[in-house]
Nucleic acid binder design. Structure first.
Lengths: 332, 332
DNA sequence: TTGAAAGCGCTAACAC
DNA sequence: GTGTTAGCGCTTTCAA
């Protein structure tokens, strides 16, 4: 059992003042002037008794938990999510907000769990970081007036505050890089989305055609090692093998490198590869991989900032697009 | 501002019972019998008013926050940490505990921040996951009676509850694998620890000598891409090049593969490589890498379970060692 | 089987 | 400038 707390009452007694005064001093309450010696007496008592205000009592009074729920439905081991989390944490820390992590398990019950956490006062606002948020659920959140922000590479800003990145706008530039290497037949490989349309596909096709290059097609498959290998093997063994591949996500890119090597296809040279998205292995792979890297940390930071603004009834822009960047390495 | 809460008082009024009864029903309070129809009336009112008990009020009364602080001082993007977190979360979720994440920043102030969080009732117990915990700080925690558990690959169980793994005991077996491939000259490369002695070093040396193989030395350096590259280049360019390398952490292993390839050293064949520790890249590298893999998820799960036991005044063993496993892949 | 009432530790409106 | 006091929403003793 936790030992008995030192309360502000104890401090008040020790300092020979009222509990209210203790509160005034500790919170620097506006419009309340405290005599310097009184303040000092309180501070001394605080130190002497090793007093720590209870966040629960305070929160109860103010109806605030001083925590933000961070939600993802990707595996928590996802590098991108963790990198964002770093930004979120740095920003929230400044305002003394804690991070409460929530993970999607069974899709159905999950939205309820989120609401439950909010309703039970376990956090004051929500950041969805790389989490699927259905339009229905957005409606529900909006109706309930729950502060929330969505951070996602493919942000729309429709009906909600979102933070995204312009990485698809880097594609024409990436295509130019292929062209400069003499790679004119290009293919795309990446995950297969079932319910939604994947904006990457159109962006790729558009960029290839405006660049005047040849589109060898889209090679999509579920995000699963075996399927990816198979898909890419098919792609690299096809009659008109592409000279360049854009991978929708790093894992597809790495498998391109691996399978190309197994088939004796030289990268760079016979084939050029670039991926969308970051990982800690882009530098380590052989060859190291060129990529459109997302400003993950800043996205997190920016999302957290937006949420804080919303919670404090400040203005917050509904869509923030952060600039992403192409990092050239050996593979292209 | 959050809208006004529905309180248990409201529910009581709606159901025509007292607030106490609502509490009894909702908590299934022991030694209190409630007439079925009363119970039903309460439940109906709860549903009708969409009532959610406030964790803050409850926590205040019971002096519990129903949150556990999870602390790491490695970069949060560390794969091992994230995997552990998954286990921790799954276990805590069962008991309705939330996860509050804390990250080490400036070493000095950090311990105070942890205490501050505990003292202000922001969490009820602590899990150190891959975090440095000094003996002094352990003492402090013990003295204050703060429930905590340490999860670390190199656990000692001294003065605290710890969860670890026996991966170093897999080394003789790993050495045998090198031997079977005809690799008799072995080197170790890994991070350089400054303050503590690294148990991996002795374990490697012991295993090599009991296996009757030749120890080509320990090649240590700070965990930093440039230094690692340099160190490993030195190792692979040395006169009596080893035929096998044990990497203390995955990154060192991957650089071995990369640099060996650049030098035209064939892996496997001319050289065999294995790493301690897991990553998502082990399968993707070329060649894929043999490793002693840690039961990260279970470590997390087990640590969380131990903490829950401690917080509930149940018995918890002070040291739990989980079994790790060698996963053979192409590099050895 | 249920209710009345006290109190957890805090803040803030109001009084002096 | 500072104190009094009334809750915030809950649990739990004690009484009925």
């Amino acid at each position: 059992m936790r030992k008995k707390r030192v309360s502000s009452k104890d401090v008040a007694r020790e300092a020979g003042v009222s509990q209210a005064t203790v509160s005034y001093v500790l919170n620097n309450t506006k419009n309340v002037k405290i005599k310097p010696e009184t303040r000092q007496a309180v501070l001394d008592a605080v130190k002497k008794l090793n007093y720590h205000p209870s966040y629960m009592a305070r929160g109860m009074k103010l109806n605030k938990s001083m925590a933000v729920g961070v939600i993802t439905d990707r595996s928590v081991t996802n590098y991108n999510f963790m990198k964002m989390l770093e930004g979120i944490k740095d920003e929230l820390q400044l305002s003394n907000y804690a991070i409460t992590l929530l993970f999607n398990k069974s899709e159905e019950s999950f939205n309820n769990e989120i609401l439950e956490y909010y309703n039970t006062n376990r956090f004051d606002g929500i950041i969805f970081a790389l989490a699927m948020v259905s339009d229905d659920f957005k409606d529900e959140l909006n109706k309930s007036g729950i502060p929330y922000v969505i951070i996602d590479s493919h942000a729309s800003g429709k009906d909600s505050h979102e933070v995204g990145t312009d990485h698809l706008e880097r594609l024409p530039e990436l295509i130019e890089a292929f062209k400069a290497k003499g790679a004119v037949r290009l293919a795309y490989t990446g995950p297969l989305w079932i319910n939604k349309t994947d904006p990457r596909l159109k962006a790729f096709e558009d960029a290839v055609s405006s660049g005047g290059l040849t589109n060898c097609g889209l090679f999509l498959c579920p995000f699963n090692d075996e399927m990816i290998k198979e898909t890419i093997a098919g792609l690299l063994n096809s009659d008109i093998r592409p000279q360049g591949i854009v991978a929708g996500s790093p894992r597809y890119g790495f498998y391109c490198l691996k399978i190309a090597a197994e088939l004796g296809i030289k990268v760079p040279g016979d084939l050029y590869v670039a991926s969308l998205g970051t990982s800690i292995f882009h530098e380590l792979s052989r060859p190291s991989m060129t990529a459109v890297e997302l400003p993950l940390y800043d996205m997190g930071r920016c999302g957290a900032k937006a949420l804080l603004d919303i919670m404090n009834d400040k203005e917050a822009s509904s869509l923030t697009i952060l600039r992403s960047e192409i990092i050239r390495r050996e593979s292209l």
